[in-house]
Design a protein around this nucleic acid. Structure first.
Lengths: 315, 315
DNA sequence: ATGAAAGCGCTAACAC
DNA sequence: GTGTTAGCGCTTTCAT
C-alpha cells in the first residue's frame, strides 16, 4: 500500500507538501502541486482515513443506538437521521441494542474510544445516570425528552399526544377503551397509562396488553380484547401494523369498523393508509432529522417536534 | 485524554505490557496484570479504536451501499445484514447512494481508505467495470448476481421468479396482464420485461409503468391501467405497498378482487398480509444475512437464496 | 515474562 | 512556500 511518504518521495517534495495539496491548502507552488497530483494519480493513491481520524481526533461518524432494526417506527427515525447525515457529509453506523443494557454500554464505550463523534439514542434500557458520563466523550442526543442538561433531545410530547388520542376517542363517544404497548417497562408505556387514567379513570389491567409490535400481535390481542365481558368499543394501538392486525381480526369476526369497533394506530405507516386506519403521527422522520442535526452541531438543545392526529375511517 | 503511555507509567510497566493485558495475552505476571487493570479502572481508560484500526489495518466495519433508506425492501435486506453483523461483532455503516454514480464511487473510495473491511452493494448505478478495481482493497459483495469472479454474491434468481409469477397468473386464466417496476434502467426491470415477453409475448408498452415505489404510486398507476381500452385483469406490482395502492384504487372503483382484478405483489411485507395480497417473497432478509456473512468471510462465493410465491386472496 | 523501539499513515507547529 | 520533526495512540517484533 502506497502512503504519503512514497508520494512525497516520488514527487520530490516533503510529506507536508503532499498533505497540503491533499487538504487543498492555498499557497503551494503550481508546479509542485501539479507534480504531486500527478504522482497521486499515477499511483492511484488514497489517504488512509484511520490515520487522519487518529490525528484529527474525529471521524465524522455518528452511531445510532436502535433497539430493533426491523421496526417501522425506528425505520422512520433512521430514515430522517440518514437524510440529515448525508446532507452534512456524515456517516451513520447503526448500533442494534435489542434493549440490552450491556450492548448499550458497549456502544457508548465506542464513543469513548473515539470511533464516533456522537451517538443518537433512539430508545434506551439504561438509566440516564449510567449514560451521562459518556457525554464527556462526544455529543449524546436522545429521541426522548430528558431534563438532563448534558443530553440533547429531539423529541415529541408523547404524553400530550396520548392525552389527545384518548380524548379524541372519548369525544367520539367511546367509554370502554383498550390499548396496546410495546414494552411494559418503557417510559412511553408509563405515559400511556397515565394519560389513560387521566381521561378514562383508573385503568382496569385487562384493557392494556403489552408486548405488541407487529400485525400478528395485533391480530392476537384483538381476540383477547373482544373476549372481555365488557368489550372495548375502541382500541388505541401502538403502531399502525398492530392496528392493522386488530382491524383484520375484527373483520374476521364480522365486526363493522368503526361502528362496532373503532381503531386508531400510530406513526402513519403505509399499512395504515392502505387500510384506512386513523393514526397519531409523531413525525418520527423529523425527529430523526433533528436528532442528527443536534448530534452534528454537538448541541444539547431540547427540540420538540409536533405531532398530529390523522383521521381516516377507522374511528 | 489518558493514553496507553500514561497507564504504563502509572502502573510501573512498559506500554507493551499494558497492550498485552488489553489484548488478553496469556503470559503476564499476575501482579503486573492486576496493577495494570487497577490503573485502567481508576483512570477510566478506554483504548483509542482509531489507533488500533490504523495499526491493525482493519476496522471490523462493513459499509452497505443502499439506494434508498426508506424503502421496505431495502429495509428487509438491511435487517438481515445487521443481524449477521451483530452476531459476528461487526459494525454496519449505512451508505445511501440514491443511485448516484458519484456517491457510489465516493463510498468505494472509503473502502480503499481503509474505513471499511468490506462493502455490500444492495443495488448499484455504476458498471461492474468501475466497481471491480476496488475489490483489491476489501471484499465487495453484491445482492444481485454477477459473473465477475472478484465479487461475492448473495442473490435470488429474479428472472425465474418473474417467470413463475407471470406463469402463475397465466395459469389462473389471465391473458391481459400489466406490471409495475421501480426504475426503467435497472436490471430487474429488464428481466421483468424479458420474463413477460416469454410468458405473454411481446409487451405492449402501456402495460408497464415504471417509477413505482410506494402505496400512492400504486393508487395512481392503477387508475392509468384501468383506463386502458383493453384493461388488464391482473397486475404484478413491484412491492406489496404498490400492490396495496392498486388494491385500494380498484376497490374505490367497485372492482372485486380477485374476480374483476387480480393483484400480486412482492417481498411479503406487512401491508400485504394485512390486506390479503398474494406476493412473491424473495426472502430479502436472508439475502442480507448471507451477504453479510460473505463480506465478513471475505468470500467471493455466489449464493442463491430461494424465493417462493405466497398465495393469499388477491389472485 | 517484559521492555525498548520501530512502525502504522497522517497532520501541524515550527523554522527557514 | 516548503521541509523537518514531533506527535496522534496503539501493536508487535526483537532482545533479554
Amino acid at each position: 500500500m502506497t502512503n504519503i511518504n512514497d508520494i512525497a518521495k516520488m514527487a520530490g517534495v516533503s510529506v507536508s507538501t503532499v498533505s497540503r495539496v491533499l487538504n487543498n491548502y492555498k499557497y503551494i507552488a503550481k508546479d509542485k502541486r501539479e507534480s504531486v497530483l500527478k504522482v497521486i494519480q499515477e499511483m492511484n493513491y488514497t489517504p488512509n482515513k484511520n490515520a487522519i481520524d487518529l490525528v484529527r481526533g474525529e471521524t465524522r461518524t455518528i452511531g445510532v443506538i436502535l433497539p430493533y432494526n426491523n421496526n417501522p417506527a425506528f425505520d422512520q427515525l433512521l430514515n430522517g437521521i440518514l437524510n440529515k447525515a448525508l446532507e452534512n457529509d456524515f456517516s451513520i453506523t447503526v448500533l442494534p441494542s435489542n434493549y440490552s443494557k450491556e450492548k448499550e454500554v458497549e456502544y457508548l464505550q465506542k464513543l469513548k474510544s473515539k470511533l464516533y463523534d456522537g451517538i443518537i439514542i433512539a430508545s434506551r434500557a439504561n438509566d440516564w445516570e449510567t449514560i451521562i458520563p459518556y457525554s464527556d466523550y462526544g455529543s449524546i442526543v436522545s429521541c426522548e425528552y430528558t431534563n438532563h442538561k448534558e443530553i440533547g433531545c429531539s423529541y415529541m410530547d408523547r404524553y400530550s399526544s396520548y392525552l389527545d388520542a384518548f380524548r379524541f376517542l372519548k369525544n367520539k363517544g367511546h367509554q370502554v377503551v383498550a390499548f396496546t404497548t410495546a414494552r411494559l417497562e418503557s417510559n412511553s408505556t408509563k405515559q400511556m397509562i397515565g394519560a389513560y387514567n387521566e381521561i378514562f379513570g383508573e385503568l382496569q389491567p385487562e384493557y392494556h396488553i403489552t408486548g405488541c409490535s407487529c400485525l400478528e400481535d395485533g391480530y392476537e390481542v384483538a381476540g383477547q380484547f373482544l373476549l372481555l365481558p365488557e368489550r372495548p368499543t375502541a382500541i388505541y394501538a401502538n403502531g399502525d401494523e398492530v392496528a392493522g392486525g386488530i382491524y383484520l381480526y375484527a373483520k374476521s369476526q364480522q365486526l363493522k369498523i368503526p361502528t362496532d369497533l373503532a381503531i386508531i394506530g400510530q406513526e402513519n405507516q403505509p399499512i395504515g393508509v392502505g387500510m384506512g386506519i386513523s393514526t397519531v403521527d409523531h413525525q418520527l422522520m423529523k425527529v430523526g432529522e433533528q436528532a442528527c442535526s443536534l448530534a452534528i452541531k454537538k448541541s444539547r438543545e431540547k427540540v420538540k417536534i409536533p405531532y398530529h392526529i390523522v383521521e381516516r375511517d377507522s374511528v
